[in-house]
Amino acid sequence: MAQKHRIPRETTPQTPQAAKTSTTATAPTAAQTTPIVSKQAAAAAKQQINSWDQVVRNLTNYYVDSTPQRTKLIDAFMAFLVVVGALQFLYCVLAGNYPFNAFLSGFSATVGQFVLTASLRIQTNEANKSDFPSVSPERAFADFVACSLILHFFCVNFIN
């Protein structure tokens, strides 16, 4: 049994690893950090940029070093949601929000899912253990599934 579990565990990191760079860039709102990264490449001499460079590098290091595998899985999912949400929003801005209920349910499904996933991430984080005396990771995941189901039900109902 243990063997069987080990093999998929080897494969799972593939997804987070592949998505890792994009995770750090997108987890903060995408508009904020991407220009900064490009700026850093252009003019590294300036003090300001230097500190930014440091901040970003620190963040990346911290992330890579101290994030458990499963949390990275969550991050990957969140990144995916951010991309999906951004695409929907972009489409709304470009093409108008004609069936407004469709836009709302589509977009809020993504946002809601993102928030729920973030909550799951917070609750399963070892560092936050003290904040949640009554929530075990299993419980957190069960909650997460229940809430997500409610969310999906509402969204599908609302989009008609």
């Binding site: 589509g106 499904a109 999906h152 599908v156 989009i159």
Partner: peptide, 8 residues
């Protein structure tokens, strides 16, 4: 509405 359905 298709993009948003796709989003969901």
């Amino acid at each position: 509405a298709w993009p948003w359905i796709a989003g969901i």
